[in-house]
């Protein structure tokens, strides 16, 4: 893959076509539903963290999940790549359909699912290995047979980190700043060419400048990926997302195009939250 001097936007798109020899389907138009959540209820023991939520996530959009602490937005996000499987007593009812596959069906392998749905966590969690290995490991364990150096460079460029780290790829990633670490985690997720990128409050541990860089990045990533973003920062949701879903006490109160939700909320509780009266 020697397409490094093309403009960044088309890079991942071109790479995506090349890296997936057997695409699941032909290129689809924007606006198509890529993740469909149907009547989803998630319980931890007796406690229902998510109650009967139905929500569509559209391709090449950033969908923000907002709501006060404990409203179930992170739980909902982690249901999409089945990270809740690791939580004891976590019980899921309802369906999530990703690209036509119902992911909680017995036939669906969560290991395979997670390859197609990348995740970025609240606190930057790079592996205590070199920058290079952080990006290449996911591709390696999933049997990537292309040019690894090119893939690492491309993902780091896509995450806006290449210029800062190109001379120290062999250094341990823990020496990077928090914002750089988080961008490295994004690059690491991109190395698998995921369909959807889940972000669980990706900026909550970062300073304003690093936050702004991640937000710019989310905006760029939308051209090739679909982003689902959990945030407790309403301004952030307003800045970067196309659609916003407001959750409260595990229930989906309202989901709407972001500019509509923030200017004309239908539900009084949404209005109360976005105007800062609680939360």
């Amino acid at each position: 893959m020697v397409i490094m001097d093309q403009p960044q936007g088309s890079l991942a798109g071109a790479a995506k076509a090349e890296m997936r020899p057997s695409p699941v389907s032909a290129p689809e138009p924007a606006g198509e539903t890529i993740v469909r959540i149907e009547n989803l209820t998630i319980r931890y023991g007796d406690f229902s963290a998510v109650k009967n939520v139905s929500l569509d996530v559209y391709r090449n959009q950033a969908t923000a999940l907002i709501g006060p602490s404990g409203c179930g937005k992170s739980t909902l996000l982690r249901a999409i790549n089945r990270m809740n499987d690791f939580v004891p007593n976590c019980q899921v009812d309802g369906r999530i359909v990703v690209r036509g596959r119902s992911i909680y069906d017995p036939g669906c392998d969560p290991v395979d699912l997670r390859r197609h749905i990348g995740m970025v966590f609240q606190k930057p969690n790079p592996f205590p290995k070199s920058i290079y290995r952080n990006v290449s490991w996911g591709a390696k364990i999933n049997g990537y047979r292309g040019d690894m150096d090119a893939l690492v460079e491309q993902c780091l460029r896509r995450a806006g980190l290449w210029e800062e780290v190109k001379d120290k790829l062999k250094q341990v990633a823990l020496n990077l700043s928090g914002g750089q670490q988080q961008r490295l985690c994004i690059a690491r997720a991109l190395a698998l060419q995921p369909d959807v990128l889940l972000m669980d409050e990706p900026c909550s541990a970062l300073d304003p400048i690093a936050t702004a860089r991640i937000e710019d990045l989310i905006d760029q990533l939308k051209t090739d990926y679909t982003v689902v973003l959990v945030t407790h920062n309403m301004q952030q949701a307003a800045r970067v997302s196309d659609r916003t879903a407001f959750l409260y006490m595990g229930e989906l109160i309202e989901v709407e195009d972001t500019h509509v939700l923030f200017t004309h909320p239908r539900h009084p509780r949404t209005q109360a939250y976005i105007t800062g009266r609680f939360g």
Partner: peptide
Amino acid sequence: PQSLRQAAYALGATRWQTVRAH
């Protein structure tokens, strides 16, 4: 740290790959 395991699992690693590498 649990975050290390989660990072590996989120990349589509099996349990053994996570244990072995991290």
